[in-house]
Design a binder for these strands. Structure first.
Length: 559
RNA sequence: UGGGGUAUAGCCAAGUUGGUAAGGCAGCGGGUUUUGAUCCCGUCAUUCCCAGGUUCGAGUCCUGGUACCCCAGCCA
């Protein structure tokens, strides 16, 4: 991502700057992006990716990609693969191989044994219901488990039985021995290990006991030499436990670093869902075509929609990193992609809703190649040829039989310029039996290519410029117009559920669009600005004879 | 209700020994323009959740409130 401008400062950078100044962590910065492979990555994860990989780059440190895969029943290789692809596409360059928390299961198990031997953990054979009841609540302290004072030997034997599969799910757990009366619920003897007789996507049937997140995460961080472990705000109350695990293990197990956890506010976008569960619901119930439906806020959806990695990094820079809960306006995301595409996308013409325009004084059979720049503000991008003939298509919305002067398009009896071409004057309209306009007739002024009409006879300025495509050369194509998926600014908070506020007009398919010839051979994922319309990218559903374009975002409109 | 957090413009967000409110998005006004785009110029918080207090001076310090978020999975 070479185009990120100056790196914005925020409280995490300030913490790192201070740490570096104090000589902590041997002057190193090592972060990690730790997704659980139980769903596809979305724009919220992008914030974390940009933060973690960005810091590694800015401080010449490193960032690991680590799958936090401690819950075999919800995780799968499909998710591992999609996440790896998405991180790679975004430009996250991780240090060494992809890591799996499950690769550390043996070490984590050793840590559990060390804790048991030191009297810091015990096997509880209460039922889940008893445990919940004995945990107390916000106002009432918990009650010690009757098994809290088992001997080390007994705990070791029971834990061995757990590992050996001699106990069933729910019959026993390993718990930390901390404080059942702590005002922080997370410290009321949290569960460290539970029994799950499920096949794990990465370790297969090697284990039937799995460590909990709170036990796995600090140890994984310490094993990898992570210096700054960044997570979202909801883990704040877990930090004392994170520290307890590492502090209690000190002297018992050696790690290359003593990482610290810092929390930042997760990204919320209005008119958007960022709940993995609800996103999955949209996919499972068929409200969208899949995880990569261009309307989805997933990384793969944004990619298919036409967003660039640079625009997503730019967006994350714009949003910043802080600790206050916030809801970012989706207009900011759109601004980021418009900014990128305005600079880099070649221009093209595509008529979305064709209306035939016949030029009556055009020499019969003549075809002229007009030259147009790929990008009006960037000559270095070169030029392209656009064929012009006696019959062209213009957009139905660009013609009116009558209009006031604010309508800067074609009006019967008046003139308009065909972009990169000639000035034409509409002379007649042809309608069908229903009175619908099926064709417009016009004449063109041959002396207006690259210059304005000379003998204007006091007719005033041209109304404007419209785009067009030669009827005999245009490439028939499909254009998919997208709008926001939800009509509610906060779909997650809708009482009636997220599906109740789905936008029925989130997808409009235009089957009869016609694009200029050069677009017929555009590669999948290539992006263009269709002049006067918006930014579009080539969808993978395209066929050689029929390209499919997705609207990424429309042009700003100010009238 | 116990604990932990957060409050600066319509939306993000700087503001770190108290010195007189950055920037972006959105909006508004104008200029340029063969894209109603881009670009350019201008405008947009007498005020920082509220109320007191300290001070020559407070978004920054003190006191007391208020609002919102997170925690009672053998999820992460």
């Amino acid at each position: 991502m070479s185009e990120r401008s100056e790196t914005p400062t925020h409280f995490i950078r300030q913490i790192i700057d201070r740490d570096l100044a104090e000589g902590k962590h041997d002057g190193k910065v090592v972060t990690r992006f730790p997704p659980e492979p139980n769903g596809y990555l979305h724009i919220g994860h992008a914030k974390s990716i940009c933060l973690n990989f960005g810091l590694a780059e800015q401080y010449a440190g490193a960032c690991n990609l680590r799958f936090d895969d401690t819950n075999p029943e919800k995780e799968s290789d499909e998710y591992v693969n999609s996440i790896r692809t998405d991180v790679e596409w975004l430009g996250g360059r991780w240090q060494g191989d992809v890591r799996f928390a499950s690769d550390y299961f043996e070490t984590i198990h050793d840590c559990a044994l060390a804790l048991i031997r030191a009297g810091h953990a015990y096997v509880d054979t209460q039922s889940p219901e008893q445990m919940a009841a004995n945990r107390g609540n916000f106002t009432t302290p918990g009650t010690d488990s009757p098994h809290r004072d088992r001997s080390v030997e007994e705990n070791l034997a029971l834990f061995a039985d757990m590992r050996a599969g001699k106990l069933d799910e729910g019959q026993a757990v390993l718990r930390a021995r901390i404080d059942m009366a702590s005002p922080n619920m997370n410290l009321r003897d949290p569960v460290l290990y539970r029994i799950r007789k499920a096949r794990h996507h990465h370790t297969g049937d090697t284990w039937c006991i799995y460590p909990m997140y709170d036990f796995t995460h600090p140890i994984s961080d310490a094993i990898e030499g992570i210096t700054h472990s960044l997570c979202t705000l909801e883990f704040e109350a877990h930090r004392p436990l994170y520290d307890w695990v590492l502090d209690t293990l000190t002297g018992l197990v050696d790690f290359p670093s003593r990482p610290r956890q810092y929390e930042f506010a997760r990204l919320n976008l209005n008119y958007t869902l960022t709940s993995k569960r609800k996103l999955k619901q949209l996919v499972d119930e068929g409200h969208v075509s899949g995880w990569d439906d261009p309307r989805m806020p997933t990384i793969s959806g944004l990619r298919r929609r036409g967003y660039t990695p640079a625009s997503i990094w730019r967006f994350c820079d714009m949003v910043g990193v802080a600790r206050a809960d916030s809801v970012v306006d989706v207009a900011m995301l759109e601004a980021a992609i418009r900014d990128d595409l305005n600079q880099h996308a070649p221009r093209a013409m595509c008529v979305l809703r064709p209306l035939k325009l016949v030029i009556e004084n055009w020499p019969a059979g003549q075809v002229e190649q007009l030259e147009a720049p790929q990008h009006p503000q960037n000559e270095a991008m070169g030029t392209r040829q656009i064929p012009m003939s006696g019959e062209v298509f213009i957009d139905r919305e660009d013609f009116l039989e009558e209009a006031n002067k604010k309508f800067k398009r074609l009006v019967l009896g008046d003139r308009v310029r065909l972009r990169y071409g000639y000035v034409v004057r509409a002379t007649d309209v042809i309608k069908d039996a229903q009175g619908e306009i099926v064709e417009v007739r016009c004449t063109y002024d041959p002396d207006t290519l690259g210059k304005n009409p000379e003998n204007d006879e006091g007719q005033g300025k041209l109304r404007g410029v419209i785009h067009w495509v030669s009827a005999t050369h245009g490439v028939p194509c499909e254009v998919r117009l997208y709008d926001r998926l939800f009509t509610s600014p906060s779909p997650e908070r809708e009482e009636a559920g997220v599906t109740a506020c789905l936008n029925p007009a989130s997808l409009t398919v235009l089957e009869g669009a016609v694009a200029e010839p050069a677009l017929g051979v555009a590669a999948v994922e290539s992006r263009f600005q269709f002049e006067r319309e918006g930014y579009f990218c080539v969808d993978r559903d395209s066929r050689p004879d029929r390209p499919v374009f997705n609207l990424t975002v429309g042009l700003r409109e100010s009238f």
